[in-house]
Amino acid sequence: MLKSILYKEWIKIRLVVWIALGLGLLALINIFLKVRHDILFVDAANYWYSFLFRGYTYFSVLKFLPFVIGLAVAIAQYFPETVNKRIKLTFHLPVSENGILIKMHAFGAVILLALFLLLLGLFTAGSAIFFPSNIIRASLLTMMPWFLGGMATYFLVALILLEPMWIFRGLYAAVAAGFVTIFFTGASIGAFSPVLLPLALITLVLSCVVLFSGYRFRKGEM
């Protein structure tokens, strides 16, 4: 049964996942080709200097990528369920309604997380060629809110899409926009470090809010 559930979710999101992976790899290739090029031109010491003391982030092209990927995966996974209220079919399957929603959602979240970790891993490996651990650590700290923001986007967009009433979709979207903006506020390198753990915890508990929309759907808010 779990296999069937995951099979359907994978059919929905696979195209988006491959495109996202492709985009991520292209972004990484772009980043490191540019770093290599710039280091040849301005000298490595100066390049490090611009990161350490000028706040130049060589990876800023990655900033909104997790947001876009989170949004795209959520839409790919949940939009087909909302067309013609198709989620009714899902809730009618001989499994617990919350259970199946949790499994669908967990699958999407795990795929997204795996994708993000893969990109971060490749980023770390690429950075290790050019930079010492201090710069890599600071870079990862700076990117972490963006990737957390991508996860939060996925969870909140799922909530919005599954909500049966348009007016509430709008209200949820307002809250989601306000919340997701936090992750993308401009800040100097490493400035998010004290708030990463609280943000990660909030994102983690947001993973279950899709159940709220699912419940509202099942109890006839339409």
């Binding site: 919350n98 949820y172 809250v175 306000g178 919340f179 936090i182 947001l206 809010v209 709220f212």
Partner: peptide, 21 residues
Amino acid sequence: MIKFSRYILVATGILVASIVL
């Protein structure tokens, strides 16, 4: 679990409102 998910949303709403307003 569902009630809990609602309180998470309410808390998130309060957080966002107390930043934005």
